[in-house]
């Protein structure tokens, strides 16, 4: 439904978006993950015809956004929740959008209700809103026309954990009805909670994309044994590099099956063996973007710690 093909954007001599290609299918929530300045917002602005691409194409349902008549009525867009007139009330902001799209005014109340803004809060000026309230108002605005496609830039920014879970339910519901959802974030845990498909972008390039499960599997294995020293030796013999993760546990980029086999062959009793956990995925994100990161956030890999990910469908 959303198709981005060899899309690039150059500002002077800086390539903000560098030849990216991806597709978001109906029925899925796609997370667009990348560190600050990676090119997420630029991509979403090109998708909504606000920024002209240097080359490549970005289409929705096969059409350029600007070719779609009354696009707001078919595509819900939230690019920046703080881009609202501070002097307008929340209700007025939604009323203007509804009027432009030609929607029934009762949708305004329905959406205020849906995003949890009380009638009293809706009468307040947006300038007095908290970040989370602005975000909810922006989400309400994007949902006004009950669109089939949602494009949201950092929608979870400023939401509390309950808000993030609420949004996950909401977007899940949209996707289950056949909707296409694309949302960006620079926070892994938000994407992890909300999305099924993940596209990771760093320095304008896609560094990994695939389903969340695939990318999670790429995070390797966590293993714990009664005698950790013996386990370390056994794995080392099997050619599996490990890093200590807890007092008696290790993480490794090898498959759980290989780790289990090596431990069994050496007769080491395991206490725990599972795919890499959240920290593993965090590692993945940092590793994937480290090479592209201006601040080189990720620490230098420990000796013997191999490349983070082999799979993940390099684009």
């Amino acid at each position: 439904m959303i198709q981005v093909q060899n899309l690039s954007k150059r500002y002077g001599d800086h390539l903000a978006v560098d030849d990216i290609t991806f597709t978001c299918r109906p029925g899925t929530v796609t997370g667009f993950l990348g560190p600050n300045g990676a090119g997420k917002s630029t991509t979403l602005r090109m998708l909504t015809s606000l920024t002209i691409p240097t080359s490549g194409s970005a289409t929705i349902g096969g059409h350029r956004y600007s070719d779609i008549p009354n696009p707001g009525a078919q595509i819900g867009v939230l690019l920046d929740a703080s881009a609202q007139h501070n002097g307008r009330t929340g209700r007025e902001v939604l009323t203007i959008a509804a009027q432009t799209m030609g929607l029934d005014r009762k949708r305004v109340d329905e959406m205020l209700d849906l995003v949890g803004l009380s009638p009293k809060e809706a009468k307040r000026r947006v300038g007095n809103y908290s970040l989370g309230m602005r975000q909810r108002l922006g989400i309400a605005s994007s949902l006004l026309a009950d669109p089939q496609v949602l494009i949201l830039d950092e929608p979870a920014n400023g939401l509390d954990p309950a808000g993030i879970h609420w949004m996950r339910q909401l977007l899940r519901h949209y996707a289950d009805r056949g909707g296409t959802v694309l949302l960006s974030s620079h926070l892994l845990h938000e994407i992890e909670v909300i999305a099924d498909e993940i596209i990771v972008i760093g320095n304008g390039q896609i560094v990994a994309q695939g389903s969340k499960d695939e990318l999670l599997a790429g995070a390797g294995t966590f293993v714990r044994a009664l005698e950790p020293d013996e386990l370390a030796r056994a794995l080392s013999v099997a050619g599996i590099h490990v890093t200590p993760a807890t007092a008696d546990g290790f993480s490794t980029d090898a498959d759980p099956a290989d780790v289990g086999k090596a431990a069994a062959a050496a007769g080491v009793a395991l206490v725990e063996l599972r795919p890499g956990d959240r920290a593993g995925l965090e590692d993945l994100f940092l590793q994937l973007t480290a090479g592209n990161q201006r601040d080189a956030l990720a620490p230098a890999p420990a000796p013997g710690f191999g490349p983070a990910v082999q799979q993940g469908g390099q684009a």
């Binding site: 779609i68 009354n70 009027q99 519901h173 009805r177």
Partner: peptide
Amino acid sequence: MTAVAPEVGIDLNRPRVPFTRLVGVE
């Protein structure tokens, strides 16, 4: 929940925002 509904395409034949409405909004 429910099964995934079939995709409904983007409709290019809808009317665009009438100019009078844009004036009203402005």
